[in-house]
């Protein structure tokens, strides 16, 4: 690892100012991706800007009207311990507890997971299913981008030079709604998703009134499949309906073969994992409220 300069701004304006003068700087929250990439030579850095000391990036806030705001540097262990998240976003607690092991969760953040923009990112399909948006700050001020549009290629995203992620905003859960993220790994922990599936479902009088489906590890970016969710609208959540939605998601996938699985196996898993995620989301929608 080459030597680099390190800065830890204490406010968002200071960070934006620093970034304006060092547009190639690497941003560090927990560092669980960046430091590994620097050590292995996959990335290099002249300047690293640590965003952990910025108060706004460390906030978690929830209210029933606006929903949930998660600061970009909030580590996973704070999400899993948060009472409001436990009660309103149980799937988010699961995802935060699956990213790395206990030590990693003390550092790793959902903001970092989003900005690392890996096709296999565990949190992104769920954030897409939940309809989350990314709040971005930069030299031109602030802007919001839907998470389903945030990633543009493996390791690439909508952040322009000089911009940084401030927070992830998730709408308040609708009554009779549920969400889930499931990933397939050959082991029980500490692995990268061969296929991941996020799903959310809202029921009105037992009929599906809203649904969103997204996949990980089957395309160059986490993949939002609007048609899968739309196919469920005005349907009862029957096994056939969920299976049909899962097939639509499977058709949208364009997996590759690599050391984590063959394309054929991933394609097969798409249908299995989406169906199972939908089943869990429906069960949650039926049990709460």
């Amino acid at each position: 690892m080459k030597a680099f300069d390190y800065a830890a701004p204490a406010s968002l304006p200071e960070a934006v100012g620093l970034l304006a003068s060092q547009p190639s700087a690497r941003l560090l929250a927990g560092g669980t991706d960046l430091l590994v990439q620097l050590r292995s030579g996959r990335k290099d850095a002249d300047v690293v800007i640590d965003v952990k000391k910025i108060p706004e990036l460390n906030e978690i806030s929830f209210n029933p009207a606006d929903g949930l705001t998660i600061g970009a540097a909030v580590p996973c262990y704070r999400l899993t311990a948060d009472a409001a998240i436990q009660s309103h976003y149980p799937a988010l607690v699961e995802v935060a507890s699956w990213i790395g092991g206990t030590q990693i969760q003390g550092r790793a953040s959902l903001g970092g997971n989003l900005c690392n923009s890996a096709p296999s990112a565990d949190s992104i399909p769920l954030l897409i299913a939940l309809g989350a948006t990314a709040l971005i700050a930069g030299p031109a001020g602030r802007r919001s981008v839907p998470v389903d549009e945030f990633c543009t290629a493996p390791g690439r995203n909508q952040l322009a030079p000089g911009e940084l992620l401030v927070s992830i905003q998730i709408p308040a859960p609708a009554p009779f709604s549920g969400a889930a993220y499931l990933r397939f790994i050959p082991r029980n922990e500490m692995d990268i998703a061969v296929v991941g599936a996020g799903a959310s479902v809202t029921l009105s009088n037992g009929v599906i009134s809203a649904a969103r489906v997204a996949l990980s590890s089957v395309a160059p970016t986490p993949l939002f499949v609007p048609a899968a969710g739309e196919s469920l609208l005005n349907q009862m959540p029957t096994a056939e309906a969920l299976e049909a939605a899962a097939k639509i998601a499977q058709e949208a996938a364009s997996p590759i073969s690599d050391m984590r699985g063959t394309a054929a196996y991933r394609r097969h898993l798409c249908a299995v994992m989406v169906r199972r995620a939908l089943e869990l989301a429906v069960a949650r929608a039926q049990e709460i409220n």
């Binding site: 050959p186 082991r187 922990e189 500490m190 692995d191 990268i192 690599d258 050391m259 984590r260």
Partner: peptide, 27 residues
């Protein structure tokens, strides 16, 4: 699950404990 996953050029693609997939205590 364990194996050296080599590409056709003979480069090991899973040379880390993340991807080499030894069983953990949870497995």
């Amino acid at each position: 699950n364990e194996e050296y996953f080599m590409d056709t050029a003979g480069d090991m693609r899973n040379g880390s404990y993340l991807d080499y997939r030894m069983p953990t205590a949870l497995d």
